Amino acid sequence: MLEILTGAGLATASGLNAFIPMLAMGLLARFTSLVTLPAGWEWLSNEWVMVIIGVLLVLDVVADKVPAVDHVNDIIQTVVRPAAGGIVFGAGASSQTAAVTDPASFFTSNAWVPVAIGVVVALATHLLKAGTRAGANVVTAGAAAPALSVTEDAMSVGLTFAAIIVPVLVIVFLLVLGLLFWVLFRRMRRIRDARRARASGSEPPVPPLPPAPAAS
Rank of each mutant, 00 (worst) to 15 (best):
D70Q: 07
R187P: 04
S105F: 06
A13M: 06
G118T: 04
V79K: 02
S95E: 00
P67G: 00
N110G: 05
T36W: 03
P204I: 03
T101A: 13
L16I: 11
N46M: 11
D70N: 12
I52E: 07
N73E: 15
R133E: 09
R195G: 12
N73Q: 15
M50N: 04
H126G: 03
P213S: 06
E42K: 15
I87Q: 06
A147W: 14
M25S: 09
A147G: 10
W48A: 09
Q77P: 04
G118Y: 07
M155K: 00
A145N: 13
G178A: 11
S105R: 14
I75D: 05
L169Q: 03
L23V: 14
D193Y: 09
T160H: 05
E42S: 12
P114S: 01
H71Q: 10
W182P: 00
L184C: 08
L148T: 02
M155T: 09
V61S: 05
R198A: 14
V168T: 13
A136K: 09
P167D: 05
A11N: 03
N137Q: 15
T6L: 04
S156L: 11
W48G: 10
G118K: 05
T151C: 05
L177Y: 07
V66A: 05
N137A: 15
E42D: 11
L177K: 04
A99N: 11
M155E: 07
I164M: 08
P67D: 12
E42Y: 05
V62F: 14
F106E: 04
V49R: 03
S149V: 15
A8G: 08
F161M: 08
S14Y: 01
R186F: 10
G178Q: 10
F173T: 06
W41C: 08
D60M: 02
V62E: 07
S216Y: 14
P146T: 01
R187Y: 11
L159K: 00
T108C: 02
A130F: 15
R81Y: 08
L175D: 03
F89S: 01
M50P: 10
T32R: 07
R187A: 13
A63G: 04
A91F: 06
V138F: 08
R195I: 05
R190Y: 12
G118C: 08
V166H: 10
S14H: 03
A29G: 09
L177G: 01
A154E: 02
S14C: 12
K65M: 15
L177A: 11
E42F: 09
P210H: 13
F31A: 14
L180K: 02
M155H: 01
I164K: 05
